[in-house]
Computed example of a mutant assay.
Amino acid sequence: MLKHTLAAVAATLSMAGSVFAQTDLPFALDWKFEGPAAPYFVAIDNGHFEAADLSVEISAGQGSLDAIPKVATGAFPVGFADINSLIKFLDQNPGAPVTAVMMVYDKPPFAIIGRKSLGVEVPKDLEGRVLGAPPPDGAWAQFPAFAIANDLDVDAITVEPVGFPTREPMLAEGNVAAVTGFSFSSYLNLVRLGVPEEDISTILMADYGLALYGNAIIVNTDFAEANPEVITGFLGAIAAGWKDAIADPASAIESLIERNPAADAELEQRRLELSIDANVATEYALANGMGGIDADRMAKSLEQIAQTYEFQNAPDASLYFTDAYLPDADARMLK
């Protein structure tokens, strides 16, 4: 009897020790709790963060740039943001303690979403029409390079600054002919507003000359340098969450709906699947594991950024991305 009691006490102490050993890690997303955010909640619900001794609290964001200052100031140790915006931020704030450590959107979802009935199907169709663009939008930030790649006469395009909440409604009502946005978000938002799918055109910038990368996991470098094992564990759990979501999108959306009960489960599952197929499970990521980048492609993307952005300092890819915290490739394979 005493032996069983001592064993029970030891087990209780062991469990308590594991709980107390968990590191609290607030994680700042780029946007709302929609389909592409589901894998991060899967990483919680399927125990991947817990297995890495992490207690992760996920916060919604307000755009592709939103998490960058949050992480740079140390308000959040980790976040999710557009790497192109991060590049410009670091150029304007040399030495800021923030960098990308894991590429998630290997093929970025930057897109022009138009309506065929309003005459927009290919890039050149934007000339002579009104384009709605939220100023903080990650896709809008890449538009100048997209315009150069497609030889667009930007003076012939009327740009209407719009807010995120009014972007798709304005397009649905015909007040603009197209909008900038993320392919999987704007497309399905229009569907939800009753725009026929056959009337929607998705002009993915990556299919029209842009070598840019998309959103990545970013870290506060001071925190990462002091806690490298925490970051590596976190990234391994992120990869596991995406792998689970790819294998069972419907189950992943259940995790999302727990955090956002007002969401349309069917719509968000489609949004998740669109992001998987077009942005995450790319040929490169499937072959090499998610998270890494190709040096030649990064160099080309910096050249494209420099076409429309005047660097204050010589661009240096090592300042914007490091693979030092990535777990082994086997731990990052998506299938």
Rank of each mutant, 00 (worst) to 15 (best):
V19K: 01
F20T: 14
F20C: 08
T23A: 08
D24T: 15
L25I: 08
L25K: 08
P26A: 12
P26G: 14
A28D: 08
L29V: 13
W31C: 13
K32D: 15
G35I: 02
P36H: 00
A38S: 11
A38I: 05
A38Q: 03
P39T: 02
P39S: 06
P39R: 01
Y40L: 11
V42M: 02
A43T: 00
I44F: 09
D45F: 11
N46T: 13
G47N: 00
H48N: 05
A51P: 06
A51N: 12
A51K: 13
S55C: 06
V56L: 07
V56H: 06
E57F: 13
I58L: 05
S59Q: 09
A60Q: 07
A60R: 05
G61P: 08
Q62Y: 12
Q62F: 15
S64Q: 03
S64H: 11
D66P: 06
D66R: 01
I68W: 03
I68L: 05
P69L: 02
K70F: 10
T73Q: 11
T73L: 06
A75F: 03
F76T: 05
G79F: 03
A81V: 02
A81M: 00
A81N: 04
N84I: 03
L86P: 09
L90S: 07
D91H: 00
N93Q: 09
G95L: 01
A96L: 00
P97V: 07
P97H: 03
V98N: 00
T99Y: 05
A100Y: 00
A100M: 01
V101E: 05
M102N: 12
V104H: 03
Y105A: 15
D106Q: 14
D106F: 13
K107E: 08
P109V: 11
F110R: 08
F110D: 11
F110L: 07
A111M: 03
A111F: 02
I113P: 09
R115Q: 11
K116C: 09
S117F: 04
S117N: 05
S117M: 05
V120M: 02
E121Y: 06
V122G: 10
V122Q: 10
V122N: 13
P123G: 10
P123Q: 07
P123V: 06
P123L: 04
E127G: 15
E127P: 04
G128I: 07
R129L: 10
R129M: 04
V130N: 07
G132S: 00
P134T: 03
P135E: 07
P136I: 08
D137V: 08
D137G: 13
G138V: 06
W140G: 14
W140R: 06
W140F: 14
A141M: 10
P144T: 03
A147M: 01
D153K: 02
V154K: 00
D155M: 13
A156H: 09
